[in-house]
């Protein structure tokens, strides 16, 4: 038995499925792929399946991964990739299967790319609104947690951030804390832009990559 890390993208219609539904979808695909999986013992045998970090609903993912356990002597990584690729819908393409190098617990940062299309005014105006928001002393936000609503200042959590107008839209690239310890959604920033700067736009978000504390790419 060994654990392999399956790398895939979440695109198109698949952006709109929740993490829970993604787990069902992946479980069915694994079953359909006939990859010799290692099952937990017991009354209700289950295949081992651990996703590195759930994606928020509506967001695309360029480098998502899930760890599965296979009966290693019976299948190669390349075969896993090909079989799973065939079993998944086209919106969840598998691009690699590797040996896990880091534990998912090591994830500390994620990079995002947000494309904001203004619904009122133009992209320049939107950029000014964003600059004004970032120039605020504090960016108060609230977030649902297990213990209720948490209120905090988003500003100290913002990592590297850049923005530029691209065509009719504003492109925003940023790093945010991610992982099981502190996970900050970029939607907190876009929601603040809407509510605190009265900006109206449609946001297309993708998570580009995951990193550890030292900004090494998660592998």
């Amino acid at each position: 038995m060994k654990t392999v890390r399956v790398w895939f993208r979440k695109t198109g219609a698949a952006r709109y499925i929740s993490h829970l539904d993604l787990t069902h979808c992946m479980a069915r695909a694994l079953h359909r792929s006939r990859i010799p999986l290692w099952y937990t013992q017991g009354f209700n045998p289950r295949a081992h399946m651990v996703f590195a970090l759930p994606l928020p609903l509506g967001m695309a993912g360029d480098r998502e991964c899930v760890d599965i356990r296979i009966e290693e002597e019976r299948i190669t990584a390349l075969e896993v990739k090909e079989r799973l690729q065939r079993a998944l819908p086209a919106t969840l393409p598998v691009f690699d299967v590797t040996e896990p190098k880091m534990k998912p617990g090591k994830i500390a940062w994620a990079s995002y790319r947000l494309l904001l299309e203004p619904e009122e005014g133009d992209a320049r105006r939107l950029e000014e609104q964003l600059e004004a928001l970032l120039g605020q002393e504090e960016i108060p936000v609230e977030k649902h947690t297990k213990s209720g609503m948490a209120h905090f200042d988003l500003k100290p959590y913002l990592g590297e951030l850049s923005h530029r107008v691209e065509g009719d839209a504003l492109l925003l690239e940023l790093m945010l804390p991610a992982g099981s310890e502190k996970n900050i959604s970029p939607y907190l920033l876009t929601e603040a832009l809407e509510s605190q700067r009265d900006a109206r736009f449609c946001c297309r978000a993708r998570r580009v990559n995951l990193y550890d504390l030292e900004r090494n790419v998660f592998e």
Partner: peptide, 19 residues
């Protein structure tokens, strides 16, 4: 469509693209 999907419960109902 994209502009409203994130405002509704279970947007997966409305996008198709299933296996």
């Amino acid at each position: 469509l994209e502009k409203i999907l994130l405002k509704v419960q279970k947007p997966g109902r409305y996008v198709g693209g299933e296996l």
